[in-house]
Design a protein around this nucleic acid. Sequence first.
DNA 1: GTATATGCAAAACTTTTGCATCCTT
DNA 2: AAGGATGCAAAAGTTTTGCATATAC
Lengths: 154, 154
Amino acid sequence: MKEHDDLKKTGLKATLPRIKVLSIFEKNKDKHLSAEDIFKIMLRSDDEIGLATIYRVLTQFEQSGILIRHHFESDKAVFELNEKDHHDHIVCLQCGFIQEFVNEEIENQQKLIAKKNGFNIIEHALVIYADCTKNPCSCKLGGAENIAKCHKLT
Amino acid sequence: MKEHDDLKKTGLKATLPRIKVLSIFEKNKDKHLSAEDIFKIMLRSDDEIGLATIYRVLTQFEQSGILIRHHFESDKAVFELNEKDHHDHIVCLQCGFIQEFVNEEIENQQKLIAKKNGFNIIEHALVIYADCTKNPCSCKLGGAENIAKCHKLT
DNA sequence: GTATATGCAAAACTTTTGCATCCTT
DNA sequence: AAGGATGCAAAAGTTTTGCATATAC
């Protein structure tokens, strides 16, 4: 089982809750999920889990490098798989849609800035808050399937 | 009174709590303060205020463009005066010291990226998380006055 | 005088923790 | 079998809200 082996590689015991949480992220590679999102997804598929366990597992996964934690503009943290290919985010303020991007020039400038100011970069977070109305955003297209695409839950 | 007039300009009634909160930000132009920071500062100077009022005032100030809200890596929001000169932040993970910076090249690249992806930028947040040990960070220098400089309260 | 703002307490919401029980190795 | 992981409930931390009272204009 893929998730089972991935967990063992990081030194974590392959328990059912951990396997379940990891597989949800594998099935939602393009999504940014909160603890509550995970909880709701598992409730809907009749998987028993406690919210406290989810918080513990998410923190462990972040520490072992499996997940990345983001704060974006809201009070609650969201997580995504750490695919090693660093990227930044554009967040649509209307529907929450998240577009990922990379830009070498920005990466380089950051290194120069840190060096000039005497800092060692540990990591960074660049979030552009925007409207995707011109895109157009899925919400504007209407229809349950688009609203679903637009928001976070699967 | 400066704060009084500034408030009237934005259409807000110039009440005592609002004037007090605004003047704290004026006195701490280089700091990023949380609701609780404000609360503690006012307690120390014997100004009566409720925490709920601080939260309401901070939100109103943000909406009227007086303050900017940041989330950085922690759970609690921090605010700073909106000086109109946009800048980004380097946050020291060891002591919380915050260095501001601007970089035109990064600003331009963001505009290009948004355009290419069909988004209207509303705003953006770039935070570099780093160690300022090489700086060296005030905490490392020791001494109460440096620790104080390093952290947020005034 | 009237509408709005404040203070307090209670509630809402996210996240953490203590502890008895269960599961992985 | 033993140690770590889970679930539940309770707590902690941040932010919001209801309502009676106070304040600005």
